[in-house]
Design a binder for these strands. Structure first.
Lengths: 250, 250
DNA sequence: CGCTACGTTGAGAACAATCAACCCCGGTGG
DNA sequence: CCACCGGGGTTGATTGTTCTCAACGTAGCG
């Protein structure tokens, strides 16, 4: 949910085993200004560097599962991550898609309240929770920044509740595309056409729809001239103003 | 969303004009241990007392509207508040019901991202935002506590996304009753029968349903022997285990 | 070159929404 | 005192959006 304006061209930084930690040079972090680590003094940054490691995931790799002991916080460096909750019978609700600059893993309890999995090849920074907490105690500015980020997450979650509870399939898809586009622009990338790296099924689980309905609605928007579907999972928003209206329920 | 275990018998503390501020004695606050003000040193409490005032609302009175400048934070002292977002055509999504001990009004931007209105006669503490922010700067412990509260709100919001996106009407109503019951117990009140102070319409807007569907689903649960509807807006959970199963999708 | 996963499209079913009537209760004013 | 009114709640009939089940196409990959 954070802002980001650095071009990351590829996904892979250094080929390491899945989940294996790697010493990361925070000084060279390209997304630092949008993360918890923004605006740190050099000595603070050094302390962060001392506890952080890097994790690399392949498409589909799990990062952690709901109920697991919450031992780490993460910051997405490149790629994309999906976070979701499950019902006993397998029904799934995505609670978010995370892109470079976004953080995840914050847990009030001792365990994660949701699962996280890589949508594409992804690299993350990993902070041991205990150590980070101790750092936050000593640097209230960092905690203040974290509060701002969590508050923003909460506002985004409330917007999503409005979508899930009250918008039609059409409005949901329009809102979704616009959200992806805005976040892409915030990361300094092209907002149109927008890259849609997740599957129809994932999109459905994010919007409270089935794959079929997602597919049909894309088709419908395409035939209505609002969008075109480009190869490589890109969507061109041919009539953005119209999409904005649809998303707002007009 | 906060925890609370003090019995508040009535709603009215002191009859004052709607929305009018009143000097409040924080030292005597019965819900302090669940709020931002929990575990403060006496001198910190004195500083809070110096900036806080009290607000009293009648049933249906607005507290603030989405888009309005966010000048205050609030803490519910007694009563109940609903917070919601609207679409252009009037469709409404409740994002939460707040009870004694809960706070509201946190805004990342300069304006409120949602509207708030009293469900019943309600009393709140009011903190000027700027002054509270200055206090938070000086007392990182308070900010730490606030972070914990917001994180909890976020976890609740994610649970609600699962409900809105993936649960059936039946499962939604069962989940809703159990949530009210749990929060009632946390406030030290009777969890069964549970008091349901809000209208069918409000419940529908919270669960992403219409009034009619809410009403029908209550009837259905009643006929199935899971609940009984008592006078005074109370609901007896005759078979709580069954409700738990329904809520989990079993 | 065939798998498999993903996406699209179609037909029919189902759940919840809509439209509508009615009830009950509390408040108000004749 | 009672008739009227209005809001909230319940129930019924019907509609409709989305889901389900199913078939088929396509692209990437071993």
């Amino acid at each position: 949910m954070a802002i980001f304006d650095v071009k990351t061209t590829g996904q892979v930084r250094e080929p390491i085993a899945r989940g294996a930690p790697l010493r990361a040079p925070c000084g060279a972090c390209t997304v630092r200004h949008l993360t918890l680590c923004a605006a740190l003094e050099p000595h603070e940054l050094a302390e962060i560097s001392a506890i952080v490691s890097s994790v690399e995931l392949a498409r589909g790799d799990p990062l952690f599962d709901e109920g697991e002991p919450a031992q780490h916080l993460f910051n997405v460096t490149s790629g994309a991550v999906k976070v979701y909750k499950l019902l006993a019978d397998g029904r799934r609700q995505m609670t978010g898609f995370l892109f470079p600059g976004d953080f995840l893993g914050l847990a009030n309890e001792e365990t994660y309240a949701y699962s996280a999995e890589a949508v594409t090849h992804t690299v993350l920074c990993r902070f041991p929770r205990r150590k980070l907490e101790r750092l936050l105690e000593r640097y209230p500015k960092m905690e203040h920044r974290l509060l701002g980020m969590v508050s923003h997450e909460l506002a985004v979650a409330q917007e999503q509740m409005l979508l899930l509870g009250r918008k039609t399939a059409r409005e949901k898809i329009a809102s979704f595309l616009l959200m992806l586009s805005r976040r892409s622009v915030q990361r300094g990338q092209n907002g149109n056409p927008v890259v849609v790296p997740m599957s129809r099924n994932d999109i459905g689980d994010y919007l409270g729809l089935t794959t079929e309905t997602v597919s049909r609605t894309f088709t419908q928007l395409k035939q209505g001239g609002s969008i075109s579907l480009l190869p490589g999972g890109k969507v061109e928003m041919a009539d953005r103003a119209r999409l904005e209206d649809i998303a707002e329920g007009l």
